[in-house]
Design a protein around this nucleic acid. Structure first.
Length: 274
DNA sequence: AAGAAGTCCTGGGCGC
DNA sequence: TGCGCCCAGGACTTCT
């Protein structure tokens, strides 16, 4: 499932090829509950130039030259993939973008199997409001500031706080489990029970895990692929997620346990997480 | 007011 | 081979 590292990977690939390109044609093959209709989208996008492709939290933002932006959330199965000019829409392909830059034709397809994702056109002010609802970018603040975000006198569970996008933006189910494991903390720990030392350690782990995952172009645990259609390499570095019943990769003695926490599959080592 | 549970959706894996 | 069932989950909404 695309989280910060996966979305950042796609952002880089999209930005590299799309910045400065002009939208030539937009075809909506399949509209849906979260996919805009053809007419409105074409009218707003054709002949516009993409200034940049940015990321905030798990959102991808195509900044356009007239001030509007195309904002997409991949949720579970959303994808932006580069395709050849002869590409025929597959079953779950929803929108095809044809662009042109320096005499070259570029085609990008938006597809989404489970239709949880969304893609919408927003004004500058709407975008600003939307982005204000998110907590800070974990890789853009100091570990100390990050640790402060996890300071709370509440009985809230650690994993629930990590998944809360208003606390910290960009962490999803996989990295929440991986972070807890590397920090040696049980996902069920109450925030109030964390010492300041544990919080700073946790903040450093959040940053190192996310940085390492970005460097490996994300994790393909389910069906994530980047904009080149390639899986991410971080799967082989996972220590707990999807490893229920297997031995812990850190202590080699504990067995990874899976529980449900906040309706999410949650994995941890009973031996090295406390 | 926090936290639990329901909601959207489809493909894949399972048992029979 | 195929049917029915259950599971995966981001984030919003609704209930307790």
């Amino acid at each position: 499932m695309p989280e910060l590292p996966e979305v950042e990977t796609i952002r880089r690939q999209l930005h590299r090829r799309l910045a400065g390109s002009k939208i030539v044609e937009v075809k909506v093959w399949r509209s849906g509950r979260e996919t805009p209709r053809s007419i409105r989208l074409s009218a707003a996008l054709v002949d516009r130039t993409i200034v940049s492709v940015e990321r905030r939290a798990k959102l991808l933002i195509w900044k356009l030259d007239h001030g509007q932006s195309l904002v997409a959330h991949l949720k579970m199965t959303g994808r932006f993939v580069f395709v050849s000019s002869s590409h025929e829409p597959a079953k779950h392909d929803r929108i095809g973008f044809s662009l042109r830059r320096r005499g070259q034709n570029i085609r990008v397809v938006w597809s989404d199997v489970r239709q949880f994702g969304f893609i919408r056109l927003v004004s500058t002010s709407t975008l600003k409001k939307l982005l204000e609802t998110y907590g800070p970018e974990p890789l853009k603040i100091s570990p100390e500031k990050l640790a402060e975000r996890l300071k709370s006198g509440s009985v809230r569970k650690l994993k629930s706080a990590l998944l809360d996008q208003t606390v910290i933006a960009g962490i999803g189910n996989i990295y929440a489990d991986e972070v807890c494991h590397r920090a040696g903390l049980l996902p069920t720990r109450r925030l109030a029970s964390l010492s300041s030392r544990e919080r700073v350690g946790l903040a450093r782990v959040i940053q190192s895990v996310l940085r390492a995952a970005v460097a490996e172009r994300g994790t393909s645990a389910d069906d994530y692929v980047d904009a080149q259609g390639k899986p991410g390499n971080f799967l082989k570095f996972l220590r707990v997620y999807g490893r229920a019943g297997k031995p812990c990769r850190s202590c080699h003695q504990g067995i990874i346990k899976k529980i449900v926490l906040g309706q999410r599959g949650t994995h941890y080592c009973t031996r090295c997480q406390r």
